[in-house]
Amino acid sequence: MADRRPGKPVPRVDEESKGFWEACRRHELRIQRCRSCSQLRFYPRAICPQCMSSDVEWVLCSGRGEVYTFTATHQNHSPGFRESLPYVLAYVELEEGVQMLTNIVDCPADDVKIGMPVEVTFEDIGDDIAIPRFRPRAS
């Protein structure tokens, strides 16, 4: 079983977000689309902010995107993160058009560039949670 890494936060799965995390556990990246107005939305929430509908579907994403912006974090005193410095915090813009806060992994911090093509990769945390991160891909 993968290490829970004491101190590093584990996402709290709740009624509004469980569809996302259940998909992640299967290593699928799914985001919500309003069945009423077709607006895509991330992060997940029960009500569409655009049309107020509660009718929602979970769309399977390609898992591909580009780095929209990033920062190489060299200082973070929090347990779980201070051991992994420097790490890259980034917004990735998915092919579907929404931005996700994430980490860029499997790549030296100095090599990360805005516009760099990336693909999702999942880290299993125990049996019930997998966290989506992104790694470089051939364009």
Partner: peptide
Amino acid sequence: GGGSAGDPPDAFEGVYGPTVVGAYAM
């Protein structure tokens, strides 16, 4: 520092280690 208030967006942010500086740095 880290820190998470447990509000809905946090589950999609806190796990990635955002710091205040990092948010501005992006």
